[in-house]
Design a binder for these strands. Structure first.
Lengths: 141, 141
DNA sequence: TTGCACATTAGAATTATTCCAAAAAAGACT
DNA sequence: AGTCTTTTTTGGAATAATTCTAATGTGCAA
């Protein structure tokens, strides 16, 4: 028995786990949580599955997203990034370091509570992305 | 005398208003508020300024965004859209009608109040986009 | 084992956008 | 107006990310 949101056994209900799919998923789940792009994922996948193609990485990412196993994250028109964090969250892009941080709502906050939504709205998905700078201790000039 | 946030005279401080820039801006400000793409803007601009090129529309949009006269809006990896609404707001994409609606925060809500931000974060910009369906009265099956 | 549906692949195609170099326009100053 | 300089515009080429295509591979099931 494991926690309900863990897929660390690398199985996804209803999806045939080929070696490529498994490896793409593995790279996201237990590789660095740095929101890699398809091209970066390909590099990582190649360590264990050399010969994998970029097209396959895109294919795998597509089915994984469709099966709600991972999320696709977009910053402006940059290359899409992918993340295995399935909890509701947004992203903060620190333009100092280039790093992307997951951002959660404060406890008890619901998106619908804070937005002026037209009556009869049903939200299927949302994306919250922030851009700014994280002030580090060594901020001098 | 007019309201402080109106630029309906089609002047933007610090920006030379060529006929193309003026027309691109005008199309956004007093054309339909449907968040058009660059290609759609070009079509509209051509009514008054035929011969305008897509490259110019992109150029104009770029300087307008830089001068904070309009905002660029991205939905996933779709073509960028542009909107003249400078108030803080997000966007709701109704997948029934294809329409995009501006969404504001409920009064008094600040983004920083509701998100668990790392200490020392300064937000420079953010984007909130929702996707879902707006239930209309003629929803049957 | 053979058949079949699904996956993967390399490379071509597509799409949105940016780049480029040349022509045109806008000021500024006589 | 006439000339000079700088900024804009333009069409087309270039780029980047992603998707498509057609051929090949793989693995389960009968």
């Amino acid at each position: 028995m494991h926690s309900p949101d863990s897929h660390t056994h690398l199985e996804i209900p209803g999806l045939r786990m080929t070696k490529q799919r498994k490896e793409v998923y593995r790279v996201l789940v237990d590789g660095p949580q740095d929101h890699p792009t398809a091209a970066q994922i390909l590099e990582r996948v190649k360590c264990n599955q050399p010969g994998t193609s970029l097209a396959t990485v895109y294919n795998c990412l597509e089915v994984l997203v469709e099966h709600n196993a991972i999320k696709q994250v977009n910053f402006d028109r940059e290359s899409s990034r992918y993340c295995p964090n399935l909890r509701e969250h947004g992203h903060f892009h620190d333009t100092n370091s280039g790093q992307i941080h997951d951002i959660t709502f404060k406890p008890g906050i619901q998106l619908a509570d804070i937005l002026e939504l037209p009556p009869g709205t049903s939200i299927e998905e949302y994306e919250i992305t922030l851009r700014g700078k994280l002030k580090t201790s060594e901020q001098s000039s």
